[in-house]
Design a protein around this nucleic acid. Structure first.
Lengths: 194, 194
DNA sequence: ACGGGGAGTAGACACCGTCTACGCCATCCT
DNA sequence: AGGATGGCGTAGACGGTGTCTACTCCCCGT
């Protein structure tokens, strides 16, 4: 079984990932994916009952990609939890900026409950890594670690979203997202040690 | 000129707003809007060169709605800046939850540069209100007010987004967004006064 | 050897956004 | 006054989409 014949299902997902990375969300039509995978437009239906089920599988691939990127970045960084958290955040923002189409697809709420494994559950390991680091780095105060981690994730996500949307630099005069990221980490975790 | 004949352009936008509020983003097709407005599918083209231009006008209506809601909430609240900021934030989150389709439409990045008035500029007044309040309430530290305001907006937006997406409660165990909101305000603005 | 069933094809259907040709009607000019 | 003009809305065509339904083919088990 060589590369060009890796199973139609896998080829469909791979073609979809490639498409959304290269041309964005609007390019990921069922028929175009089928064309790129070299099958007829009816073939995907054998593996994915509906278009959104296929999109969901593609988005899951995106989560997997992001998770391994985060893990790799963290392996290469200083083991200090605060540093690791910074690395995680930086990777998250970079991923969103570099693969905007995929990032948008991953968080489309109409894909949430599709596919065998639900997309919601797919994002949990990534959040668990963040929550674990937050639990290590936080100063003891009254807000539970899970709430703190959720708020921090939301802040990260909001920066990624609004930055891609393009209004934040116009409104704030900030020209790169690093200042926002640092302010966010300082706000939620206390001022940086050094 | 009675109500039922308020100009085709206005009727189209109104029908679109109604549709996206009632049935969500996927329902706002050009032809369906035209149908609801009682005109042929070709009529919109006279006023909006393309579908996204019409969507952009609908999204602008959403920003106007949100802005007036925020202003009304703030008029009714205690004039203390921190309280006003809380009211603004609460209104933002409630709006996103109650009108998810509209909220999604408003922040679709492919609508950003459409229409006579760009969507980006339409959001500026809203942000200006937030930035102004932040400037009043912040404790003097090293992070510029604009950065602080941007980070806070991003945090708000991220909560709205991730909450609608549905993973946050699952991952954090938090069952309503109020804890996240309070944690966010405390993190960025310092602990609440009382 | 042969029947059966899964896999992929091909066409139909309704819907979509865009484009173009065409009527209609008010308005303006001579 | 009457005819040309131009904007507004209609209607149909076109290529594209997702879904559904025959239909074919080939591999596998009995």
């Amino acid at each position: 079984m060589n590369d060009g014949d890796a199973g139609v299902r896998a080829r469909l997902v791979a073609a979809g990932v490639d498409l959304v990375l290269r041309e964005g969300q609007s390019a990921v039509s069922l028929r175009e994916i089928a064309r790129r995978a070299g099958v007829s437009h009816g073939a995907p239906r054998r593996y994915f009952p509906t278009h959104v089920d296929l999109l969901s599988a593609i988005a899951r691939e995106g989560f997997a990609d992001l998770t391994t990127r985060v893990q790799k970045t963290m392996r290469d960084a200083d083991p200090d939890p605060r540093t690791q958290l910074t690395a995680l955040a930086r990777t998250y923002l970079d991923f969103a900026a570099a693969h905007r189409g995929m990032f948008e697809l991953m968080f489309r709420h109409d894909l949430l409950d599709s596919g065998r494994l639900r997309l919601r559950e797919t994002s949990l390991p990534l959040f668990a890594v963040l929550a674990d680091l937050v639990a290590q780095v936080r100063r003891p105060d009254d807000v539970p670690a899970s709430v703190l981690a959720g708020a921090l994730w939301a802040n990260l996500h909001g920066i990624a979203q609004l930055w891609a949307w393009g209004s934040l630099p116009l409104a704030t005069g900030v020209t790169d997202d690093d200042a926002l990221l640092r302010a966010t980490l300082d706000a939620h975790l206390g001022p940086a040690p050094h």
